[in-house]
Nucleic acid binder design. Structure first.
Lengths: 201, 201, 201, 201
DNA sequence: AATGAATGAGTTTTCATTCAT
DNA sequence: CATGAATGAAAACTCATTCAT
């Protein structure tokens, strides 16, 4: 009479979120299935009802995490089309700097994956595609800036790479020393310098 | 005095190098003491004659690895004092790009440490100091450039951070996709853009 | 009286047959309650409505399986009383050889029980009784043959044991190598030899 | 100075014997690696120094057990060539009946393997070859008996199968009910009947 | 009656570390 | 100094059984 609602999807997310939290805190290898279970408020056995193995959880997170990051960039670039490229990049910068606060706990996850990428082909290939998509999106934006006369004629892809590298590097420095500087301002300053370097005069 | 030469130091280095190689290949957690012993051509027991534990090996590598990186930067900055700051930075860039080739196998090690830094205070603090030293050194150089009139008056520390972040980010992108671009050129271009952004006009 | 017919017995048999099929295929220990449930087309929970535990299912099968085997022998021996003992044994032989075909899938079950018998007193005792009953029935038949002058005076129980052993042994050889020989003929030949050995001359 | 003797072979046998004892007592699936370790007087870890897995131990036993059984038959058949075939078969019978006593604890092992054979191709194939070798050896002996005029012209292979089946069946009956009869005599009687059935008159 | 989600004790296997030789 | 056999404390994963619905 009362059809039990399907809790599968809910459980899968519940486990995924718990796993992300614990992985970010302890790293993949230092995290026990028991830790995830406890964080999720489930039993160890329940984990295996929804995910085949620890590796499956990890690779599900990999996809979820970077797909979401890419989606955020895409939707950001699609918006505010009336603004100048420079303005849109600064807007993105502010968005990232603000994200930092609640992503505090998730940035470590990125670096877990980067470490794994060095030794696992599948992870490396996935991230390769992610960074490629990221680069392509930024390249288009820079190209647009060149066409609009905002930037001087410069290889747009190289700029895209520079921007990507800059932000990944800043994330690392921030991870290691959150109090070293006022990161919001540092992000803005770095972007300013870089854009000044390509701005048409 | 002692008839036999002390091989302690030799053995310690032998183990360290073997460990670095294997750690870079497999990651800290995926590496067995057996793997290190085999790579070093020693027995597992011998490892414990020279290092108290696996963790001790790891933290010895941490110090060796980043201290060496810092030393390289220092000695680089001390040399070529007759050149312009811009020239010296490009020289450093060439040096790094060239290092990439033989450091191919060691870059993963950095990212192992970055992942660990997220969860271990001691590692994080060590890296914090490393990046601080790095930042200070570059800040001095930039400051010198400003004083020489090469660069416009800009917060030199922010530039130092930007440069550091840029190169760490490039290392990551290169790790994930070594064939994505001509990294030597990309390094140079990125630096060009950045320096163009701060060059006095 | 009850509007709904009692499906209990039906369910119990449904489960038993499913379990026999799966046990024969995978062995007791390698069979999951899930496997039985699936084979029976029921839920895992339903199994526990009709059987207290996996062990209960197994011991119910033990009883069902060998009781049925004994019943078959009994009813066989009771029939064809007008024939000679020799003829009745050959008739039984043909029956067994023909059974082999459809019992193909259940012979493994016997050997599952034989393996268990070695370590579980209750199973061993049950089989002990089964083989005793079997022996007694055959002994009577042989005794009858002696009295009829078909066989020379020989310890009838020893013959009964020999016949039982022979058929159990043939079942094993057939299980291990179904194509080694024409088992129907081998069964007949073996019986011929054995009966020739006790036939009055 | 004192070269440590290689204990590998010793350990491997030590483990094998312990495993055989425990497997015979508890069955393959009911035996824990801990049980074997304890029986062998070693730690669980030590087991894995000498055998890759539980399955490896089992299949090593499979080979050891049946190869040894075959060797015993072979060497038995090669001896006493001056005796009649009948005498040699009775001699073998006495040997087996006497073996029973110390094999008490190992017969269960056979039936463990027979149960596994039903579901594992590799085990089945191994046993298939074993029984084939066994059959061939006995066939030669029977053939010799026919040529010597001891037996009437009868398909020797069928007789070999009958003898093999008879002894395997007797082992089963004995396993289930060691006290049912005087097995030494039953073995002799069974063989007598069977040989009487093929003896030239 | 029936379901199937959830549990958690139990099992195999791994591996850092020790220590007798 | 050096070895490598041995240890045993984990850790991933399984599955009989329970129970809310």
């Amino acid at each position: 009479m009362s059809p039990r609602p399907d809790v599968s999807e809910e459980r899968r997310n519940q486990i995924l979120e718990a796993a992300m939290a614990v992985f970010a805190r302890q790293g993949f290898d230092q995290t026990r299935m028991d830790d995830i279970a406890q964080e999720a408020g489930l039993s160890k056995g329940a984990l295996y009802l929804y995910y085949k193995s620890k590796d499956t959880i990890i690779s599900t997170i990999l996809q979820f995490f970077f797909t979401q990051a890419m989606n955020k960039l895409s939707s950001f670039l699609e918006s505010e089309e009336q603004l100048s490229v420079r303005q849109r990049l600064f807007s993105l910068n502010r968005y990232y700097m603000q994200e930092m606060k609640w992503m505090t706990s998730l940035v470590p996850l990125s670096f877990e994956f980067y470490a794994v990428a060095a030794r696992q082909k599948t992870v490396r290939h996935f991230l390769k595609q992610y960074f490629k998509d990221y680069r392509v999106a930024l390249t288009q934006l820079i190209q647009h800036g060149i066409e609009q006369g905002e930037f001087r004629p410069i290889e747009p892809e190289q700029v895209a790479i520079s921007i990507t590298a800059l932000y990944e590097g800043l994330a690392l420095l921030w991870l290691v020393d959150p109090d070293a500087t006022t990161w919001e301002q540092t992000g803005a300053t770095s972007l300013t310098i870089l854009l000044d370097g390509i701005t048409a005069r």
